[in-house]
Design a binder for these strands. Structure first.
Lengths: 234, 234
DNA sequence: CGACACCTTGATAGTGCTCAATCGGCGTGG
DNA sequence: CCACGCCGATTGAGCACTATCAAGGTGTCG
């Protein structure tokens, strides 16, 4: 689902576009969606967007910036479930349930399009093609969660980190946010650690290994991939 | 979603019942669903029900017996994603996609209700309330996958195993398949290992620990819980 | 009875964790 | 402009948890 940038005021380029449009087929008129939209909202970096268990009033779609979904264990450890890039929706499960079972936090400053939880579900479920498409998104998200279960259960630190980065990179490319083999990459080692179930120190060591073996390097918020082929094989 | 047993020939008691009925509210008439059903099918224990990536012709719902969803890593390791108990559907994502991104295997002998993939999706998506309910199931399954990601990323062997068992037990209780504090439990240590990302040997050790500390014990296909409270706290 | 699947136990090794110290970059405020 | 403080990255030493390898035990089924 490639997604070009546009102004957050221009509905067709942004809000739940990936649901409303499928390839060249228009499932719902832009003007209808536009009527549902509320003003955009901006969250500062590190700001929590949703708290787990909280009754949320709105569903968002990321217009610019990065965020992530996560859960906390009782002992205070954090597990990052997925990263949300421009075009991804935040809180889609709110279409089916009043409460979210995970938290969401802004990684960078994030601008989101806003849809009211009181209108959006009815709007979507009144349109079978839209409803099916929204459900397809959920099913795909589930399949990706299964992928991550596989990673966490079966792979070692090196593979987990490599696959996490590969996944993000391929999504960045789909969304045409790359410049050659360099990518914006706002994750710290702590984020990578919390996503892969490792320690920040150990992530640092593995990243060092990757740098010295000339696979990839991360510095100052940018990721450079030096050996694309090797990364794909992992 | 409690589910009593019935005869596999009696539609109202079985096929996608959990989707068609919600509490006391009937979303779809039993006779309509009955018309969709094909004859039941039985899979022997250890038989593969779906192969990952294969184009499936039918959607199932477990009538009796246990199964599990899993994926294989390239190095031959297996990751079990979830266990499927009576009442659970097999291959629900087929409502949204032609292919399944995981495999499914029978743990015990399994009897399933059968719905044609060529009719079921249209049937469901033509009925908004049904469609929404099916999507809700997907969203819940996703939330459970997120739970498992948390387990794998943040918890040690003891906690993972305890929580896996606790999860299964609570589902067995919902479905009234318990007898006091004893439960049918057909998983081998290998299954537990593949579900928790551990080694069978280590699972055996931890289970031994749990037995000697009088928490629970597993033997000959039955699980006995000796300290319910302690198990809940983990 | 033999074959097989599963469980148990022991010894050893390795992956990744913990604790701790240091360093560099960057923003803030004097 | 510089000092300070903070956050994140890096490095080292030692250890814990879990894996690996191996052998033996028990139960079940044909």
């Amino acid at each position: 689902m490639p997604l070009e940038s546009g102004s957050p005021g221009a509905c067709a380029d942004c809000p739940l576009r990936s649901i409303a449009f499928y390839g060249d087929e228009t499932i719902c008129h832009a003007s209808e969606l536009e009527a549902l939209r509320k003003p955009c909202r901006v969250f500062a970096a590190k700001r929590t967007i949703f708290h787990e268990g909280e009754a949320a009033k709105d569903v968002y779609q990321v217009y610019s910036g990065w965020a992530f979904r996560y859960k906390m264990a009782k002992d205070g450890r954090r597990q990052i479930l997925s990263f949300l890039l421009p075009g991804d929706s935040i809180g889609l499960p709110l279409l089916y349930s009043e409460r979210l079972r995970h938290s969401v936090k802004a990684l960078t400053e994030v601008t989101v399009c806003v849809f009211g939880r009181s209108e959006l579900p009815d709007f979507i479920h009144a349109r079978p093609a839209l409803a099916k498409r929204a459900a397809t998104f959920c099913a795909n998200a589930h399949a990706e969660a299964d992928e991550q279960i596989l990673d966490l259960g079966c792979r070692n630190a090196f593979e987990r980190i490599a696959r996490l980065i590969r996944g993000i990179v391929s999504r960045l490319r789909e969304r045409r946010q790359s410049e050659g083999d360099a990518y914006p990459f706002p994750l710290t080692q702590l984020h990578i650690a919390d996503a892969t179930g490792l320690t920040p120190v150990h992530v640092g060591r593995v990243l060092g290994e990757m740098r010295s073996s000339d696979l990839l390097s991360i510095s100052r918020g940018r990721l450079a991939i030096h050996n694309q082929d090797l990364l794909q094989q992992i």
